[in-house]
């Protein structure tokens, strides 16, 4: 099947053009001199300068970063535990309910998740702010982490863990010394996924944030409702740049790790 017909070439070209042209336009026009975003008036970086002087955006960016780091870290710990319970937990009371609660948030409309969490926070009288957004984000991202980590745990050779236990490790040591290094790539990609989900979230954050905490997506959304603005273009360009660099380097690192792991496994097989 390795020949590209003209039809394949055309559909790939058009498809990738469709995916990337809007972002390229956004990036190009963020360097536009004019206040009118759709009219090109020469190259300038002045919108980046204005962005750096805009305290509202900077403080929103800070809140967003704080929320993302905290929630993705909590979500990674809880999600890895959840994955372990799903794959290795054996039978326990309410297992079906547990797996349901892991998978349901993945398909839940954000408006419903947001509304329900807000009603909970009001019901128990927690003041809304950074903390409530962290709680909300941790809850839905831990489910994504669980799915990513459990798919790695399923393919993982259990005899390695058993060997460590036979050789005198405690279960905690076996997890730390054997299991964790092997599932580490999945745990790291789970963390990255949770981090970007949190950075990106508008709807759930709008419901669960209070007047004291505005995240970047909330700020962008309220600015964008009034129309296209060059400052938002500049901000978008920065965010696209960070994500692109992050994703590409993460995939290179995990590829290297995979190659190294394969080599180690082959060496181990030869040694036997």
């Amino acid at each position: 099947m390795n020949r590209l017909s003209w039809f394949n070439t055309v559909s790939l070209t058009l498809g990738f053009a469709f995916l990337y042209i809007p972002m390229v336009i956004l990036i190009v026009y963020s360097f536009n001199e004019s206040k009118l975003v759709t009219v090109w008036a020469g190259f300038s970086t002045k919108w980046y300068g204005e962005l750096l002087g805009n305290d509202a955006f900077l403080s929103a960016a800070w809140v967003t970063l704080k929320v993302a780091v905290l929630s993705s870290t909590f979500a990674t710990v809880l999600g890895t535990m959840g994955a372990y319970v799903l794959v290795r937990g054996g039978r326990f009371m309410g297992r079906t309910l547990f797996s349901g609660m892991i998978y349901a948030p993945l398909v839940m409309p954000e408006v419903i998740t947001g509304l329900s969490l807000l009603l909970l926070f009001i019901g128990i009288g927690i003041e809304r702010g950074v903390m409530t957004i962290v709680l909300a984000h941790t809850t839905f991202s831990m489910c994504y982490v669980s799915v990513v980590v459990s798919s790695r745990l399923v393919t993982f050779d259990r005899s390695l863990e058993e060997a460590a236990l036979d050789l005198g490790c405690s279960p905690a040591e076996a997890f730390r010394l054997v299991t964790l290094p092997i599932i580490a790539p999945a745990v790291i990609s789970g963390w990255l996924l949770a981090f970007t989900l949190s950075l990106d979230d508008l709807v759930i954050a709008s419901f669960t944030s209070g007047p004291s905490a505005t995240t970047l997506p909330i700020k962008i959304f309220s600015a964008v409702r009034l129309g296209v603005s060059p400052e938002i273009n500049a901000l978008s360009t920065i965010m696209i740049g960070i994500v692109t660099v992050g994703v590409i380097s993460a995939s290179l690192i995990s590829k290297q790790a995979l190659v190294r792991q394969k080599r180690d496994e082959q060496a181990a097989a030869r040694a036997q």
Binding site: P22, L26, I220, F221, V228, S236, I240, G246
Partner: peptide
């Protein structure tokens, strides 16, 4: 991986 909001905004 890029922001959903930004992709809609574009």
């Amino acid at each position: 991986w890029t922001s959903f909001l930004i992709r809609v905004y574009a």
